[in-house]
């Protein structure tokens, strides 16, 4: 094996490890924030594999799309969860994988909130959870995790046996088939080094429709996200039933502090 080949194998192994460990960490860690970062690591690992496969433009595109995208997404997860740092769950019974990927999460027993940061007041409505969420630090977290309410222990779920089994079977089946029955007509052709030009030509020629369609799709996405997520000046009617039909606009609502959060994150989409 030549030096170049060894370097390629090394790069492949490292990048594959990053992608797989990242994805596994995402699925099993107890901390919401970490799980987002793990997913990002997985994306970057796959982007590295793209570059190793000489699809450099695509690799960079992937990194660019997902660093910004994932950071915004984690922001949302932090908003939506009681315990984004996973501190409450640090004491729970965990399987080996979970223990590994949750390594170093500080326990919730410490003062100053330990791992779960309290940035109450700052982000307005976003962090206000159901009324019974406040006494988190003092609660005992046994196996059953209390009686829910705003205090949900399942925001990152402990490994579910049957789901893990299904995933494992899935992976084993695919891997076995891939190893035993390769059916791919491999070619020795070398790709054109100027991938940007090739992709540009395809986008402007053969795949004009895909290009325009993708643009339209993104527009629909933005527009749908705004329609769904916005806080409206005119609120919807409370139910689907119209008891009176009028054509005058309903009364306006005052904007609350939570709207700022909503608007900022919307533009991140």
């Amino acid at each position: 094996m030549s030096l170049g080949e060894m370097a390629e194998w090394f790069a492949f192994l490292v990048l594959a490890l990053i992608s797989l460990a990242g994805a596994l960490g995402m699925a099993t860690t107890m901390s919401m924030f970490r799980s987002g970062i793990f997913l990002m690591a997985s994306f970057i690992g796959v982007a590295g594999l793209f570059i190793l496969l000489s699809a450099d433009l695509l690799g960079l595109l992937q990194i660019m799309m997902y660093i910004g995208g994932m950071l915004v997404m984690i922001l949302f997860m932090v908003l939506f969860s009681m315990d984004p740092g996973g501190a409450m769950m640090a004491d729970m019974k965990m399987s080996l994988v979970e223990r590994f990927f949750s390594l170093g999460l500080s326990s919730g027993k410490k003062d100053d909130g330990g791992g779960d940061m309290e940035h109450g007041g700052h982000d307005g409505g976003g962090m206000e959870h159901g009324g019974d969420g406040g006494d988190g630090g003092g609660m005992e977290h046994g196996g059953d995790g209390g009686d829910g309410g705003g205090m949900d222990m399942s925001m990152t779920t402990p490994v579910k046996g049957w789901a893990a089994l299904l995933g494992l079977a899935n992976g084993a089946l695919l891997t076995g088939l891939l190893l035993l029955r390769p059916a791919w007509p491999e070619s020795t052709e070398q790709p054109n080094p100027d991938s940007a030009e090739q992709i540009g030509n395809l986008l402007m020629g053969k795949y004009m429709m895909a290009f325009e369609g993708a643009g339209l799709l993104i527009l629909i996405g933005i527009f749908g996200a705004v329609l769904i997520g916005r806080t409206s000046r005119y609120p919807d009617d409370r139910s689907r039933t119209a008891y009176v039909t009028v054509d005058a606009p309903p009364p306006e609502v005052e904007e609350s502090a939570g709207d700022v959060v909503a608007r900022d994150s919307k533009e991140g989409d």
């Binding site: 795949y207 749908g224 329609l227």
Partner: peptide, 25 residues
Amino acid sequence: LGLIVLFLQMLSLPSYVLVTLVRTD
């Protein structure tokens, strides 16, 4: 194949908006 995936997604995305037309329900 690429266009198939694209159009399938274009079919579903606006449908989400339609399904949640009454956003408080």
